[in-house]
Design a protein around this nucleic acid. Sequence first.
DNA 1: CGGGATCCCGCTAGATACTG
DNA 2: CAGTATCTAGCGGGATCCCG
Lengths: 126, 126
Amino acid sequence: MTKQYTGLPDEADLRRADSLAREIFTDVANKWALLIIEALGERTRRFSELRDEVEGISHKMLTQNLRMLERNGLVVRTVHAVVPPRVDYALTGPGRALRVTIAGLCDWTHRHLGHIEASRRRFDAV
Amino acid sequence: MTKQYTGLPDEADLRRADSLAREIFTDVANKWALLIIEALGERTRRFSELRDEVEGISHKMLTQNLRMLERNGLVVRTVHAVVPPRVDYALTGPGRALRVTIAGLCDWTHRHLGHIEASRRRFDAV
DNA sequence: CGGGATCCCGCTAGATACTG
DNA sequence: CAGTATCTAGCGGGATCCCG
Protein backbone atom coordinates (compact mmCIF):
# COMPACT_ATOMS: atom_id res chain seq x y z
CA MET A 1 0.00 0.00 0.00
CA THR A 2 2.73 2.49 0.89
CA LYS A 3 4.85 3.69 -1.97
CA GLN A 4 8.51 2.89 -1.40
CA TYR A 5 10.10 4.81 -4.22
CA THR A 6 9.40 8.33 -3.05
CA GLY A 7 10.08 10.24 0.10
CA LEU A 8 6.98 12.39 -0.26
CA PRO A 9 3.59 11.33 0.98
CA ASP A 10 1.35 10.73 -2.00
CA GLU A 11 -1.84 12.73 -1.72
CA ALA A 12 -3.53 10.79 -4.49
CA ASP A 13 -2.91 7.54 -2.61
CA LEU A 14 -4.29 8.99 0.60
CA ARG A 15 -7.45 10.01 -1.19
CA ARG A 16 -7.69 6.55 -2.74
CA ALA A 17 -7.35 4.91 0.66
CA ASP A 18 -10.02 7.23 2.04
CA SER A 19 -12.51 6.48 -0.67
CA LEU A 20 -11.74 2.77 -0.36
CA ALA A 21 -12.34 2.97 3.37
CA ARG A 22 -15.64 4.70 2.78
CA GLU A 23 -16.61 2.06 0.25
CA ILE A 24 -15.84 -0.75 2.66
CA PHE A 25 -17.63 1.05 5.43
CA THR A 26 -20.70 1.39 3.22
CA ASP A 27 -20.57 -2.31 2.37
CA VAL A 28 -20.19 -3.44 5.94
CA ALA A 29 -22.23 -0.86 7.86
CA ASN A 30 -25.62 -2.10 6.75
CA LYS A 31 -28.17 -3.99 8.73
CA TRP A 32 -28.12 -7.30 6.86
CA ALA A 33 -24.37 -7.61 6.56
CA LEU A 34 -23.93 -6.99 10.27
CA LEU A 35 -26.68 -9.42 11.22
CA ILE A 36 -25.25 -12.11 8.96
CA ILE A 37 -21.77 -11.79 10.41
CA GLU A 38 -23.21 -11.85 13.90
CA ALA A 39 -25.22 -14.98 13.03
CA LEU A 40 -22.26 -16.76 11.49
CA GLY A 41 -20.62 -16.87 14.86
CA GLU A 42 -17.66 -19.09 15.45
CA ARG A 43 -18.77 -22.12 13.53
CA THR A 44 -19.65 -22.86 9.92
CA ARG A 45 -23.27 -22.45 8.80
CA ARG A 46 -25.25 -23.63 5.84
CA PHE A 47 -27.13 -21.24 3.64
CA SER A 48 -30.47 -22.40 4.98
CA GLU A 49 -29.30 -22.18 8.58
CA LEU A 50 -28.40 -18.56 7.99
CA ARG A 51 -31.75 -17.85 6.39
CA ASP A 52 -33.44 -19.19 9.50
CA GLU A 53 -31.17 -17.46 11.97
CA VAL A 54 -31.20 -14.02 10.40
CA GLU A 55 -34.88 -13.59 10.79
CA GLY A 56 -36.71 -11.54 8.22
CA ILE A 57 -34.01 -11.75 5.57
CA SER A 58 -35.08 -12.73 2.08
CA HIS A 59 -33.38 -15.39 0.00
CA LYS A 60 -32.15 -12.71 -2.36
CA MET A 61 -30.69 -10.39 0.26
CA LEU A 62 -28.91 -13.29 1.90
CA THR A 63 -27.12 -14.46 -1.27
CA GLN A 64 -26.38 -10.91 -2.29
CA ASN A 65 -24.81 -10.00 1.03
CA LEU A 66 -22.93 -13.28 1.28
CA ARG A 67 -21.39 -12.62 -2.15
CA MET A 68 -20.37 -9.17 -1.04
CA LEU A 69 -18.85 -10.46 2.18
CA GLU A 70 -17.03 -13.16 0.26
CA ARG A 71 -15.69 -10.60 -2.18
CA ASN A 72 -14.36 -8.53 0.69
CA GLY A 73 -12.70 -11.58 2.20
CA LEU A 74 -14.79 -11.67 5.38
CA VAL A 75 -16.45 -14.96 4.58
CA VAL A 76 -15.37 -18.14 2.84
CA ARG A 77 -17.81 -20.14 0.80
CA THR A 78 -17.40 -23.89 0.47
CA VAL A 79 -19.45 -25.84 -2.03
CA HIS A 80 -19.80 -29.58 -1.39
CA ALA A 81 -20.36 -31.61 -4.54
CA VAL A 82 -23.28 -33.62 -3.26
CA VAL A 83 -26.91 -33.82 -4.11
CA PRO A 84 -28.79 -32.06 -2.78
CA PRO A 85 -26.16 -29.32 -2.91
CA ARG A 86 -24.63 -28.16 0.34
CA VAL A 87 -22.86 -24.84 0.78
CA ASP A 88 -21.08 -23.80 3.93
CA TYR A 89 -20.13 -20.33 5.02
CA ALA A 90 -17.54 -19.41 7.62
CA LEU A 91 -15.91 -16.24 8.85
CA THR A 92 -12.29 -15.55 7.95
CA GLY A 93 -9.82 -13.98 10.36
CA PRO A 94 -10.81 -10.43 9.48
CA GLY A 95 -14.43 -11.53 9.55
CA ARG A 96 -14.07 -12.83 13.08
CA ALA A 97 -12.28 -9.64 14.09
CA LEU A 98 -15.17 -7.63 12.73
CA ARG A 99 -17.61 -9.83 14.56
CA VAL A 100 -16.10 -8.79 17.87
CA THR A 101 -16.97 -5.16 17.29
CA ILE A 102 -20.42 -6.12 16.03
CA ALA A 103 -20.97 -8.06 19.22
CA GLY A 104 -20.15 -4.79 20.98
CA LEU A 105 -22.86 -3.11 18.97
CA CYS A 106 -25.45 -5.76 19.89
CA ASP A 107 -24.38 -5.52 23.48
CA TRP A 108 -24.77 -1.76 23.40
CA THR A 109 -28.26 -2.12 21.95
CA HIS A 110 -29.42 -4.42 24.72
CA ARG A 111 -27.83 -2.38 27.48
CA HIS A 112 -29.62 0.77 26.33
CA LEU A 113 -33.02 -0.62 25.40
CA GLY A 114 -34.62 1.03 28.40
CA HIS A 115 -33.03 4.43 27.92
CA ILE A 116 -33.96 4.45 24.25
CA GLU A 117 -37.53 3.33 24.74
CA ALA A 118 -38.05 6.03 27.35
CA SER A 119 -36.45 8.66 25.17
CA ARG A 120 -38.68 7.69 22.27
CA ARG A 121 -41.79 8.00 24.38
CA ARG A 122 -40.76 11.45 25.52
CA PHE A 123 -39.98 12.53 21.97
CA ASP A 124 -43.18 11.12 20.48
CA ALA A 125 -45.30 12.66 23.23
CA VAL A 126 -44.73 16.08 21.64
CA MET B 1 -39.13 -3.02 31.72
CA THR B 2 -39.31 -6.16 33.86
CA LYS B 3 -42.71 -7.12 35.13
CA GLN B 4 -42.77 -7.20 38.92
CA TYR B 5 -46.15 -8.71 39.53
CA THR B 6 -45.51 -12.21 38.19
CA GLY B 7 -42.96 -14.85 38.88
CA LEU B 8 -43.13 -16.26 35.36
CA PRO B 9 -41.02 -14.92 32.52
CA ASP B 10 -43.34 -13.20 30.08
CA GLU B 11 -42.85 -14.48 26.55
CA ALA B 12 -44.73 -11.60 25.02
CA ASP B 13 -42.36 -9.17 26.72
CA LEU B 14 -39.34 -11.04 25.47
CA ARG B 15 -40.66 -10.84 21.93
CA ARG B 16 -41.34 -7.14 22.41
CA ALA B 17 -37.80 -6.55 23.63
CA ASP B 18 -36.46 -8.50 20.65
CA SER B 19 -38.41 -6.57 18.09
CA LEU B 20 -37.45 -3.34 19.82
CA ALA B 21 -33.80 -4.35 19.72
CA ARG B 22 -34.11 -5.10 16.03
CA GLU B 23 -35.77 -1.76 15.45
CA ILE B 24 -33.01 0.10 17.25
CA PHE B 25 -30.38 -1.91 15.45
CA THR B 26 -31.99 -0.99 12.13
CA ASP B 27 -32.02 2.67 13.09
CA VAL B 28 -28.44 2.72 14.23
CA ALA B 29 -26.75 0.27 11.87
CA ASN B 30 -26.89 2.47 8.82
CA LYS B 31 -24.08 4.30 7.14
CA TRP B 32 -25.17 7.88 7.80
CA ALA B 33 -26.14 7.41 11.42
CA LEU B 34 -22.80 5.78 12.19
CA LEU B 35 -20.82 8.41 10.33
CA ILE B 36 -22.68 11.22 12.08
CA ILE B 37 -22.04 9.79 15.52
CA GLU B 38 -18.41 9.25 14.64
CA ALA B 39 -18.17 12.86 13.40
CA LEU B 40 -19.84 14.29 16.50
CA GLY B 41 -16.91 13.15 18.56
CA GLU B 42 -16.43 14.47 22.06
CA ARG B 43 -17.43 18.05 21.51
CA THR B 44 -20.55 19.85 20.36
CA ARG B 45 -21.01 20.55 16.66
CA ARG B 46 -23.20 22.86 14.67
CA PHE B 47 -25.45 21.57 11.93
CA SER B 48 -23.26 23.09 9.24
CA GLU B 49 -20.09 21.69 10.79
CA LEU B 50 -21.60 18.24 10.61
CA ARG B 51 -22.62 18.72 7.01
CA ASP B 52 -19.04 19.57 6.19
CA GLU B 53 -17.49 16.80 8.24
CA VAL B 54 -19.71 13.96 7.11
CA GLU B 55 -18.71 14.24 3.53
CA GLY B 56 -21.23 13.40 0.90
CA ILE B 57 -24.26 13.69 3.16
CA SER B 58 -27.19 15.74 1.92
CA HIS B 59 -29.00 18.38 3.92
CA LYS B 60 -32.04 16.15 4.07
CA MET B 61 -30.29 13.00 5.23
CA LEU B 62 -28.45 14.95 7.92
CA THR B 63 -31.60 16.46 9.46
CA GLN B 64 -33.47 13.22 9.10
CA ASN B 65 -30.81 11.16 10.85
CA LEU B 66 -30.24 13.79 13.53
CA ARG B 67 -33.97 13.71 14.35
CA MET B 68 -33.84 9.95 14.59
CA LEU B 69 -30.78 10.02 16.83
CA GLU B 70 -32.39 12.66 19.02
CA ARG B 71 -35.55 10.58 19.29
CA ASN B 72 -33.51 7.61 20.41
CA GLY B 73 -31.74 9.72 23.00
CA LEU B 74 -28.27 9.43 21.47
CA VAL B 75 -27.98 13.09 20.63
CA VAL B 76 -29.19 16.30 22.27
CA ARG B 77 -30.22 19.25 20.17
CA THR B 78 -29.80 22.76 21.53
CA VAL B 79 -31.38 25.71 19.75
CA HIS B 80 -29.87 29.12 20.49
CA ALA B 81 -32.32 32.00 20.10
CA VAL B 82 -30.11 34.21 17.99
CA VAL B 83 -30.23 35.42 14.43
CA PRO B 84 -29.02 33.83 12.34
CA PRO B 85 -30.21 30.70 14.16
CA ARG B 86 -27.63 28.44 15.72
CA VAL B 87 -28.25 24.81 16.59
CA ASP B 88 -25.80 22.61 18.43
CA TYR B 89 -25.69 18.84 18.59
CA ALA B 90 -23.91 16.74 21.17
CA LEU B 91 -23.74 13.09 22.07
CA THR B 92 -25.48 11.87 25.22
CA GLY B 93 -23.98 9.23 27.50
CA PRO B 94 -25.40 6.32 25.50
CA GLY B 95 -24.37 8.13 22.33
CA ARG B 96 -20.78 8.37 23.53
CA ALA B 97 -20.86 4.72 24.51
CA LEU B 98 -22.02 3.82 21.04
CA ARG B 99 -19.31 5.96 19.54
CA VAL B 100 -16.68 3.80 21.18
CA THR B 101 -17.85 0.72 19.32
CA ILE B 102 -18.15 2.70 16.10
CA ALA B 103 -14.58 3.81 16.52
CA GLY B 104 -13.76 0.11 16.71
CA LEU B 105 -15.51 -0.38 13.41
CA CYS B 106 -13.53 2.42 11.74
CA ASP B 107 -10.38 1.07 13.21
CA TRP B 108 -11.17 -2.38 11.86
CA THR B 109 -11.79 -0.91 8.42
CA HIS B 110 -8.41 0.78 8.29
CA ARG B 111 -6.52 -2.19 9.66
CA HIS B 112 -7.95 -4.47 6.97
CA LEU B 113 -7.88 -2.18 3.96
CA GLY B 114 -5.06 -4.19 2.43
CA HIS B 115 -6.58 -7.60 2.99
CA ILE B 116 -9.90 -6.47 1.59
CA GLU B 117 -8.48 -4.76 -1.45
CA ALA B 118 -6.47 -7.88 -2.30
CA SER B 119 -9.47 -10.15 -1.76
CA ARG B 120 -11.58 -8.00 -4.02
CA ARG B 121 -9.02 -8.15 -6.79
CA ARG B 122 -8.89 -11.93 -6.54
CA PHE B 123 -12.67 -12.19 -6.55
CA ASP B 124 -13.16 -9.79 -9.44
CA ALA B 125 -10.48 -11.50 -11.50
CA VAL B 126 -12.86 -14.43 -12.01
C1' DC C 1 -28.59 29.30 9.31
C1' DG C 2 -31.35 25.46 10.19
C1' DG C 3 -35.04 22.91 8.64
C1' DG C 4 -39.67 21.75 6.87
C1' DA C 5 -42.41 20.55 2.49
C1' DT C 6 -42.76 18.97 -2.13
C1' DC C 7 -41.61 16.77 -6.27
C1' DC C 8 -39.67 13.05 -8.64
C1' DC C 9 -36.29 9.87 -10.36
C1' DG C 10 -33.71 5.62 -9.64
C1' DC C 11 -32.58 1.90 -7.37
C1' DT C 12 -33.53 -1.58 -3.72
C1' DA C 13 -35.44 -5.38 -2.46
C1' DG C 14 -39.57 -8.54 -2.48
C1' DA C 15 -42.17 -12.03 -5.19
C1' DT C 16 -42.12 -15.46 -8.46
C1' DA C 17 -40.40 -18.77 -11.54
C1' DC C 18 -36.63 -21.59 -13.45
C1' DT C 19 -32.01 -24.41 -13.24
C1' DG C 20 -28.31 -27.77 -11.66
C1' DC D 1 -30.84 -27.07 -1.48
C1' DA D 2 -28.56 -23.11 -3.33
C1' DG D 3 -28.52 -19.84 -6.70
C1' DT D 4 -29.91 -16.94 -10.85
C1' DA D 5 -33.07 -14.14 -13.63
C1' DT D 6 -36.92 -11.17 -14.35
C1' DC D 7 -40.45 -8.08 -13.23
C1' DT D 8 -42.22 -4.55 -10.37
C1' DA D 9 -43.81 -1.57 -6.56
C1' DG D 10 -42.28 1.30 -3.11
C1' DC D 11 -39.43 4.35 -1.05
C1' DG D 12 -34.85 6.38 -0.36
C1' DG D 13 -32.79 10.26 -1.14
C1' DG D 14 -31.45 14.33 -4.07
C1' DA D 15 -32.95 18.94 -5.75
C1' DT D 16 -35.46 22.85 -5.00
C1' DC D 17 -38.23 26.28 -2.79
C1' DC D 18 -39.85 28.62 1.15
C1' DC D 19 -40.06 30.03 6.13
C1' DG D 20 -38.66 31.81 10.92
